[in-house]
Design a protein around this nucleic acid. Structure first.
Lengths: 348, 348
DNA sequence: TGATTTCGTGGGAACGTTACCACGCCGTCC
DNA sequence: GGACGGCGTGGTAACGTTCCCACGAAATCA
């Protein structure tokens, strides 16, 4: 801090041009001769010049900073989103300010204000569900991510395609011979639950299944929530093999523990399919088969959409990124014990 | 962007004072009357004024931004470090720029330059091991974190107390009746391995154990590395119960798989102790007993140290944060089957 | 009472870069 | 030859805040 850093004035003097010409050469503008540009670039290298983004931002209105406001960086899904956003930002010479909101309205408001004060070029936000006012008045380009973005229909957003995810999950269950799986759902207040259920109902209609006849339990999106829901499912009694589609991987992992505690085994007695793709699913025994959300792709796509917002290009509306099946060991394959014709009919 | 944002000039005019007085009132300086301050704060609220951190940074040299350069935000340990740093930064009204280096020298150099250009107030860095030059010339206050910080002895750093971790791990193994555990170590080139081994040797000396007589294998700090090392350990044959202290949790989880593949069970035949505390350890079966690193605390402490660096307060040197035992189910308790006197002698 | 100190206020300049415009030179066209 | 347009260059001012100093009024001290 004691030693003054070289400025564009130092570069200009060394190169024997004006600061205007120096600035143009350094920014890659076309209205500079190649000879002048060479002299400027050499001078910049010689004095060790590095751009001051504060000054650039003051005059040009662009800082090269992007903001990311997510619930919790230690949550594996959001860490993947952050990673995708980081990578895309870095590819484009931009830096990412990362905040964890813990789904707290006040924290989010505080983070949004920090972003405004820092004059970021734009932000990617997983909105706290009831935070309409702050987002309306954010005043900078932004893109929403995650399920809660649905509450802001006029805004560009990027999220997992939950409908597609439920569909590939159900198709996979059916292909393994599980035609009437039980469901472990998330809490009633959550948007993701409604989307999950809607697609599940569509799936049943397509296959002439009465959804009301299928066992369903719900709970928090936690290990404990899934554990309790599975216990309730098992307490209903089961006729033969039970298959369960859990609304997220933590619930699925908790359900596995409940199965074990009941003296049963997975997948021999109970098959469990998760939804999320958290890393821990690879280490349960057996490994959890799950429908993985595209966290990293969401992060990258959100940055792309944000660049369009910043550039004033047409809005994207809502973008849904496809999920992907991750096959491990938690689903029994009952299709192997089915007569061929019955399996084909089941796939109708 | 079209609507000009209110500046301190607007606030001053509305409050009927100079911009100097307005600035003093808003920054909490003492040389303003209470009456003027009140008028200024009311005016600021009325016009919707928010500070411009670019302008503040240009004049004052302080931006309110901190940088964090870690290997990979999706790694659970580093995500915890980031979380701790975020929280401590937010408590102090600062914002955190987060970068993932992937242990790549070029990426790190690029991130350090971005931090300089953004004129951050300081940075927390897990250095790529051979990056002496860039750090020497970083030019901003910084604090190092993680094991590779040991290569920069004159610099403030914060890391896990690996010696203490190995000690509580070994003490715990002994308390469970495992007096001569095998080791699964990380790669020879890694600093953490040397520290782990050194403490292990000290522990053996204290307990009159010949370390050369204990089985040791090594590999990469990955599931696959641990899996292969455990297979080699098992291939040596085992006399009764085998206990293994693995150099990180991923290796431990890989070792568990190898145990199962060998037709053995954990903890009945083979006990496994990990090191790290990754979330996945809670979901293996049995759950992994491990010595957990204090990621979040490291992040917080690093921010505290950085504030001291920024303020020019005396350096901290190297700070080692204590690790913590997380008991789950992967260690058999052999002390229950030991005669009381023999157990006491073993602990001597 | 006069000199000195303290406090609060206001004005100018600095911070480092870009946006903007004027100007001179050169080439092309009528 | 003169008018026009394009290109490259340079100079000024703007961006929004803080730093710094000068000044006047009030309080304190001798």
């Amino acid at each position: 801090m004691e030693r003054r850093r070289p400025t564009i004035i130092d570069v200009a003097q060394k190169a024997g041009v004006s600061k205007s010409t120096a600035g143009r050469a350094l920014s890659g503008a076309s209205n500079v001769t190649d000879e002048a540009r060479e002299r400027v670039l050499d001078a910049a290298r010689a004095v060790g010049y590095e751009r001051n983004d504060l000054a650039v931002g003051m005059r040009s209105g662009r800082t090269g900073l992007l903001g990311l406001v997510i619930p919790d960086i230690t949550n594996p899904f959001w860490a993947e989103v952050a990673r995708g956003a980081q990578d895309r930002a870095a590819e484009n010479g931009m830096s990412l300010l990362v905040f964890s909101s813990d789904w707290d309205h006040g924290r989010e408001a505080s983070h949004l204000r920090a972003l405004r004060q820092a004059r970021v070029d734009g932000a990617i936000i997983n909105p706290v569900a009831d935070n309409f006012d702050d987002l309306d008045r954010f005043g900078l380009p932004f893109v929403l991510i995650g399920s809660s973005a649905e509450r802001f229909p006029a805004t560009s957003s990027v999220g997992s395609d939950i409908a597609q995810a439920v569909r590939i999950g159900m198709d996979h269950l059916v292909s393994k011979g599980h035609h009437a799986p039980a469901l472990i759902l998330g809490p009633k207040s959550r948007i993701a639950r409604a989307r999950f259920l809607r697609t599940f109902h569509e799936h049943c209609v397509e296959r002439d299944i009465d959804p009301a006849a299928l066992p369903m339990e719900d709970g928090e999106y936690t290990v404990e929530g899934g554990h309790a829901a599975m216990k309730r499912l098992l307490a209903r009694g089961r006729a033969g093999h039970l298959a369960v589609f859990a609304a997220n991987d933590m619930m699925a992992l908790g359900a596995m523990v409940a199965v074990r505690e009941a003296g049963l085994s997975c997948p021999e007695d109970v098959s469990i399919l998760g939804f999320d793709g958290v890393p821990a699913g690879a280490f349960s025994w057996p490994g959890l088969t799950t429908v993985a959300k595209p966290g990293r792709e969401i992060g990258m796509r959100a940055v792309d959409c944000l660049f369009d917002e910043i550039a004033g290009r047409p809005e994207h509306g809502r973008v849904f990124m496809p999920c992907r099946l991750v096959e491990r060991g938690s689903l029994a394959d009952l299709s192997l014990s089915q007569p061929r014709r019955a399996a084909a009919a089941g796939r109708g």
